[in-house]
């Protein structure tokens, strides 16, 4: 799933990878792949993550991981960092999710009474990146569907998600709702339909596998 999601990144893109599963996407890109990674705390051109003994104490990503520069990296303040996001210079962001609705609403920052650490830069990424894709498990730990007709949790942004990568399938959000596009090895269409709490349009004929 993470390897499949990495194919979402086209050469030359400016990309922000959210905390969690999305940060692993970079491990599936060739070392010389032309992409500019952005992080909210003020850097473009993120290089490989470093272990503590080789880390620079002043160089982290927004998740707190110690990262490195590459030729062409730039540093800037937090206002400039979000100017990049809000002005449309971010081609793609990959985010985690608690819930995604059939109209592309995203909920990924708050579970009232359980989890409310604050939204950080998530709203601006979800609302303003030119393309928003979600990487998530298809269901939560209790087996509840994360893909639903409507979100029940507080929203991060409305109608922002274009595509969802899960451990079961790749699903697009269209004007007509969820569309099954590709399916994971060892999973049946019936499994995906059963694990999705909204109508899922299934095209005729065999689906590509990943």
């Amino acid at each position: 799933m993470v390897a499949r999601a990495a194919r979402e990144i086209a050469p030359g893109m400016v990309v922000n990878l959210g905390i969690g599963l999305p940060t692993k996407v970079v491990n599936h890109l060739p070392a010389d792949f032309p992409v500019c990674l952005h992080t909210e705390n003020g850097m473009t051109g993120i290089g490989p993550t470093l272990p503590p003994e080789r880390a620079d104490r002043n160089l982290i990503d927004a998740g707190g991981a110690y990262v490195s520069t590459i030729p062409g990296s730039a540093f800037f303040d937090s206002a400039t960092s979000f100017a990049i996001v809000r002005s449309g210079r971010l081609d793609l962001t990959m985010l985690g999710a608690f819930e995604v609705s059939a109209s592309g609403d995203l909920a990924n920052w708050k579970i009232p009474g359980k989890f409310s650490p604050g939204v950080g830069g998530g709203i601006e990424l979800a609302q303003k990146a030119r393309r928003v894709v979600v990487l998530t498990t298809h269901t939560d730990r209790a087996g509840n569907a994360k893909l639903k007709q409507n979100c029940s949790l507080p929203l991060t942004a409305r109608a922002c998600v274009s595509r969802i990568f899960t451990d079961m399938a790749m699903i697009d959000v269209t004007a007509g709702g969820f569309v099954l596009v590709e399916i994971a090895d060892g999973v049946s269409v019936a499994d995906v339909v059963a694990a999705t709490d909204a109508p899922l349009h299934v095209p005729d004929g065999p689906l590509p596998r990943f």
Binding site: E40, D77, S78, F82, G118, V119, G120, G121, E124
Partner: peptide, 15 residues
């Protein structure tokens, strides 16, 4: 008491 802001909006309010 905590007031949460979107991160870039906090930056712009300060700017």
């Amino acid at each position: 008491e905590v007031e949460f802001n979107a991160q870039g909006i906090l930056a712009e309010r300060i700017r």
